[in-house]
Computed example of a mutant assay.
Amino acid sequence: MFRFLVKRLALFAIALAVVSVVIFAALRILPGDVASVMAGVNAPPGRVQELRSQLGLDRSYPRQYLDWVGGVVKGDLGTSILTGRSITDLVGLRAQVTLPLILCGLAVALAIGLPLGCAAALAVRPALRSLAHMAAIVAGAVPALWSGLLLILLFSKGQGLIGILPSQGFPVDGWGRPGPAFASLVLPALSVGIIVAAGITRYTRSLLDDVLSSGRVDLSMASGMTRTRAALTTGLRTVSPQLVSVVGLTLAEMVTGVMVSENLFGLPGLGTMLVTDVGDRDLVAVQSELLLLAAFFLTIGLIVDTVHRLIDPRLRDRSRGEVA
């Protein structure tokens, strides 16, 4: 296990370094240069030159890259040109909205997707299986924007049919008021979680169908278990490695939906920050935000691989054989 972690961490570092080079190069091949893009079309030449000097763009590309990466390693993501605030501080404040929103969305997806997938696999009547399959397809095809708007029309205070939840903004004092803070995340989490739950439902049903037809559940039933209990114990335990991979992929996919939801519901999260900085041409901030987004995806992959290895004895046995 130790060798596996060392190898995965090395691959993580290499992949993140490659991504950082790609991000750095992509922002430097824009038409003109970064200072011209950030200053705007009608900016005087003096302002462009001042901005180039302020951002260190008058240095060589290798020096610029090393300065940026060196700051990131030390926890310094740079300073926003528009606000003059530390990007690290801004990311820390907005992560308090985005990360809980992702976790809430994942909780909604698992709470809906796993039971429905199991129910669809265990359904005896073909009509029920077809209905569950159709519902998962329809829910998965709905864009996050549409699902969010529908939830606003149904449950938002002031304009919804059942006005019980806020649909815009986040408390100024953040999680200092846990109740209002959590309430402001309910509708965004539902808008993302329902869509992701559709995919988890389909995967769970498909994986359990394979197990139910493989004979493993029959052996458990022969020992005295009911079909439902055998499927929910032996079946889910057998497919748990594949489900972990599916949850990891859906968690990465959820980031896109979260960005849409944050802008729709007016939440001051990382998605809103990235969209705002792109629109305002604050490319110094965009550069670091894209790197953090890439690091998030790579971290999810690392966690999924590690958990997969821990719960699947076949992988551990194979690694022992390779060591031997």
Rank of each mutant, 00 (worst) to 15 (best):
L9P: 10
A15C: 12
V18M: 12
S20W: 00
V21G: 00
A25S: 10
I29N: 01
L30C: 14
P31L: 03
A35N: 11
A35L: 05
S36I: 04
M38E: 10
N42W: 07
N42S: 09
P44C: 06
G46D: 13
S60W: 14
Y65T: 00
W68I: 05
G70E: 15
V73Q: 00
K74G: 14
G75F: 05
L82G: 09
L82T: 10
T83F: 09
T83I: 09
T98G: 00
G105S: 14
A109G: 02
A109K: 02
A111K: 01
L114A: 07
L114Y: 08
L116Y: 07
G117P: 15
A119H: 04
A123N: 06
A123G: 07
A141W: 06
V142D: 09
L145C: 09
W146E: 03
L149R: 05
K157W: 11
G158P: 04
Q159K: 10
Q159E: 11
Q159I: 12
L161H: 06
L161P: 00
I164W: 14
S167D: 08
G169D: 03
V172G: 12
R177I: 11
P180D: 09
F182Y: 09
A183S: 08
L185N: 00
L187H: 03
S191M: 05
G193T: 08
I194A: 01
I194R: 00
I195M: 07
I200D: 00
T201S: 10
T204P: 09
T204I: 03
R205Q: 13
L207N: 05
D209T: 08
V211R: 00
L212N: 05
R216W: 13
D218P: 03
D218V: 11
L219R: 12
S220G: 15
M221Q: 14
S223H: 15
M225F: 12
T226W: 12
R229T: 01
T234H: 09
R237E: 13
Q242C: 09
Q242R: 08
L243W: 02
V246I: 01
A252W: 00
A252F: 04
M254L: 15
V258Q: 06
M259C: 01
F265K: 00
G266R: 01
G266D: 00
G269C: 08
T272Y: 10
D277C: 08
D280V: 04
D280L: 12
V284C: 05
V284L: 13
Q287M: 12
L290T: 02
L293C: 07
A295R: 02
F296T: 11
T299W: 04
T299F: 07
I303N: 13
D305V: 04
R309T: 13
I311W: 10
I311A: 05
R314L: 01
R316G: 07
R320G: 02
